Computed example of a mutant assay.
Amino acid sequence: MACIRATGRTGRRGRLAQAAELLRLSCYCCKFSTVAVMHSLLAVEIALCDRIPDAGKEPLHGLITKASLMGS
């Protein structure tokens, strides 16, 4: 599965902001929690794919490991 790409810097910021808002709303309505977690994971994957060169078809846990080794 290839990395999900967002268009431009605003795409990444928009995804992260949307994930944060959904997490905030999940405190008031537990139905938002599943959607909030999925949006958060997608936002993290998008950010890591943009930061790590040759991310390609690397799974999310591989991207997180590479980022931690890079110090990002």
Rank of each mutant, 00 (worst) to 15 (best):
M1Y: 14
A2W: 11
C3D: 12
I4G: 09
R5Y: 08
R5M: 08
R5N: 09
A6P: 04
A6S: 13
T7I: 12
T7S: 11
T7F: 00
G8T: 12
G8F: 12
G8L: 07
G8E: 05
G8P: 10
T10I: 13
T10R: 11
G11D: 10
G11I: 06
R12C: 07
R12I: 13
R12N: 12
R13C: 08
R13H: 13
G14V: 04
R15M: 09
R15T: 00
L16M: 07
L16Q: 08
A17D: 10
Q18W: 03
A20P: 01
E21Q: 13
E21K: 04
E21R: 04
L22Y: 06
L22M: 13
L22F: 12
R24T: 08
R24G: 06
R24K: 13
L25E: 12
L25G: 10
S26G: 09
S26R: 00
C27F: 14
C27E: 10
C27D: 13
C29D: 15
C29R: 14
C30Q: 14
C30S: 15
C30I: 09
K31I: 07
F32H: 15
F32I: 07
F32V: 12
S33A: 15
S33R: 07
V35I: 14
V35Y: 02
V35R: 00
V35D: 11
A36I: 13
A36S: 14
V37I: 14
V37R: 03
V37S: 07
M38R: 14
M38W: 13
H39E: 13
H39R: 14
S40C: 09
S40T: 15
S40I: 05
L41P: 03
L41F: 15
A43N: 06
A43P: 08
V44Q: 11
I46K: 01
A47W: 01
L48W: 05
L48C: 10
C49Q: 07
D50I: 04
D50G: 15
R51W: 01
R51P: 02
I52V: 15
I52C: 07
P53C: 04
P53W: 02
P53A: 11
A55L: 03
A55E: 04
G56I: 02
K57E: 06
K57Q: 10
E58G: 00
E58D: 03
P59I: 00
P59E: 09
L60W: 03
L60T: 10
L60S: 03
H61R: 04
H61K: 06
L63W: 01
L63V: 06
T65N: 02
T65C: 07
K66D: 00
A67M: 06
A67P: 01
A67Q: 08
L69A: 03
M70D: 06
M70F: 08
M70V: 04
G71K: 08
